[in-house]
Design a binder for these strands. Structure first.
Lengths: 320, 320
DNA sequence: TTGAAAGCGCTAACAC
DNA sequence: GTGTTAGCGCTTTCAA
């Protein structure tokens, strides 16, 4: 029953509630004596300030929103998602903030949760994937003066977008070199045209791949469908840009036993990899760090710090 | 700039803000004419009521907390976790509520996020896994009059705990029978003593397994370590109570090629299963439904409905 | 049916 | 240093 208010504490202490408020907010001008007295009384009575009321007075929510891409039904099962989330979470809790999950899926005839949270000012800032930053959401955020940070390099050509991303180019380069060092000499990369159009990170990974291949005097080759994996030109290794792609290749392998000998590689580890029929090579990307950095960037914006960086690029780390 | 307040709307409409408040809350006593006028003005000015202020007046947050077990570092990667979450989310958004993620990990010298959220009344209700409902958290919730629903059958002997769980006994029975119908005749179940002590769902699964085995005139056998998988008594199928256990068995298989022929089975599908070296049988449990039901139960509590069920048991569904 | 005014619990000018 | 007072934006008696 923490129904006790600042007013009652004030009465018990024989002071004005403003004085109590001052000790709550560690205001300077307060005598040691009354501060101690008030603190004691607060302890004794288990006083907890009402955060809603504080929010109303401060015009703040002490909450940030974390937005996930619901169009990807697998979002939750994606390691990408939860690793980033863990990083975000840590920073948010350290700052004594809470975090609200938000999705952007439409509700029949109603506002999406995203829109609702922004228009109602239910959070002080938002972390969202670049896939969700379309023009409409951008305008919404800007017109409501809502600070936000994008996860994944931003591609929308607009002002004032901060983003955090990993170094995909470098990661692909490392991964390709790893395959080369393992003796592979005919390495292709799997990337569908549509995905290249859509996702900047795939373009970057292609670039890193090409770089490494050409440095070793080989010729890069991009495939975007099963038909290109025919026996005349059978590669000895395939790099997959996502786990979904990896699964596709594994499906193909079923119908085509020739593929069984091919080396497979992708980005990000998964606990399942070690139990697959087919061994999978990978390079680790520091997703948790990406989450941390986004949250830290967001707090800089929320606190109106100066010289907030436009973007942060996380270096690739090589894990054995 | 949705900085417009109820007061300004009132002024524009030439009425008192109380009148505007009445149309906001669909109060009965209002003339059709003024209601229409006010509604028009609200539309024109894109008026959004301030939810913080509403919260203060209503003494509500319109938010529920979803608590996950952070001690399990894999919580996020666990299919259990996100499937339940999806169900929860759907119901919460349909009720125009938002949801806050909360963890229960300690912060040095400070309150845990869980405690903070409860004591500060940052949510109107909480959904949490049974593993987190210890005596301390229970007392906290009760003393703060915070409605909550437990996911997984409750085992704490206390008053007023509502829980939602799947029918683990039946699920295990179905799974066992599936293996029998596939021709297996020496099926064991893998469950460590410690886990049996800790998790009620394992006890239930053991029971369902025994039931099916005995109905077919066979003898149930529980193993709780690799050493029990020796060649004299090599089973022809192993049921794993969790995906973690499944991975353990797969690890053992590496060192012991004899195990390669054993049938493997577990609960809940995973997209990875179809790509494993070793085929995995499974029975699907409706985790999303568990999430939905928990959320619905919680709303009944929040809205002070009468005759709220003590607990809900979700039947097992058989997916091909 | 509507308005006036008090209040939700807290903060922040401004006085003293 | 501390009290007074006026908000923050909304709801809700109580009168009119």
């Amino acid at each position: 029953m923490s129904k006790i208010t600042i007013q009652q504490i004030a009465k018990l202490a024989g002071v004005n509630k403003a004085t109590v408020s001052r000790v709550l907010n560690k205001s300077a001008s307060i005598s040691e004596k009354t501060r101690l007295k008030i603190e004691t009384i607060m302890k004794e009575n288990n006083y907890i300030p009402n955060s809603i009321a504080r929010g109303l007075a401060f015009n703040k929510t002490f909450t940030v929103g974390f937005c996930f891409d619901y169009t990807d039904k697998q979002a939750f099962s994606n390691p990408f998602f939860y690793k980033v989330l863990q990083g975000v979470e840590e920073v948010i809790y350290d700052n004594d903030y809470l975090f609200l999950m938000m999705s952007d899926h439409d509700k029949k005839n109603e506002k999406s949760t995203f829109e609702r949270i922004v228009t109602e000012h239910r959070v002080d800032g938002i972390i969202m994937p670049n896939s969700l930053l379309n023009e409409m959401n951008y305008n919404l955020l800007i017109s409501h003066n809502m600070p936000f940070v994008v996860i994944g390099e931003n591609i929308l050509v607009k002002e004032g977008i901060r983003w955090v991303d990993v170094d995909n180019t470098h990661a692909a380069q490392i991964l390709t070199e790893k395959l080369i060092s393992l003796g592979h000499r005919n390495i292709v990369i799997f990337a569908e045209a549509a995905a290249i159009q859509r996702d900047k990170f795939i373009v970057d990974r292609l670039e890193g791949y090409k770089k490494a291949i050409q440095q070793h005097g080989m010729i890069p080759r991009i495939i975007d469908g099963q038909d290109q994996l025919n026996d005349q030109l059978l590669p000895d290794a395939v790099i997959c840009c996502s786990h979904e792609q990896l699964f596709e290749i594994l499906e193909w392998e079923r119908d085509n036993p020739d593929l069984a000998e091919i080396g497979l590689a992708t980005f990000d580890d998964s606990p399942m990899f070690r139990h697959m029929r087919h061994p999978v090579h990978f390079v680790e990307i520091d997703l948790e760090m990406m989450g941390k950095q986004s949250a830290e960037l967001l707090f800089k914006l929320i606190n109106n710090e100066v010289n907030v960086p436009e973007s942060i690029r996380i270096p690739t780390i090589l894990i054995n």
